[in-house]
Amino acid sequence: MVGVFGFAMLIQYFVPHPLGRVLYGRVLEWMQVIFAAGLVLGGATYAMSHLRTVSGRREGWIYSLLALAALTLMLAAGLIGGIDRGTLFLWLFNNLQAPLQQTVFSLLAFFVASAAYRGFRARNIDAALLLIVALVVMLGRIPIGEMTGPFLPDLARWLVDVPAVAAKRGILIGIGLGSVAVALRVMLGIERAWLGGRR
């Protein structure tokens, strides 16, 4: 099954005939539907596990109750009330979900700082190199760096555009080759550990 779908999708890339397009569109739609079914399934398993916690009065059940309340509220708002402007669904998203998400995202500022601090304890020459480049690029991007003359910004730009891009290309080429090899092995059934199987 994996092989059939794999080779069919690989071959259609080279088939300009409209039938190839039809096959491509159909399979893509199936994938979309399967992911969608998975998402609803995920929501159901999520609700089930919290229901079990609440009904068993297990540790933290009160939080599970909160989670269930939030889930039910959102589902009811979206499935009954609709998702257009002015609905409860969008109000909840804009005033609760989105700010919470943005705040978690903004935690990154603190984490970046602590990660940088960790990086300062450069353990070896590689880490030192990473740190120096990071500093140059940072300084090159802010006005203080520019005040020291064009050298720092120019160096920063060169580091980003030339050696960094070269290394990135090297990484990408490796990833490309690795991806093709894994995909081929999976299609041929040589590698089945993704479903726990062994040859």
Binding site: M74, L75, I83, Q101
Partner: peptide
């Protein structure tokens, strides 16, 4: 918990309605 609960609900609603 509220964030996760809301976001699961949000995604389910969007998926049901758009897919």
């Amino acid at each position: 918990q509220i964030l996760v609960g809301l976001s699961v609900g949000y995604l389910v609603v969007i998926t049901v309605r758009t897919t």
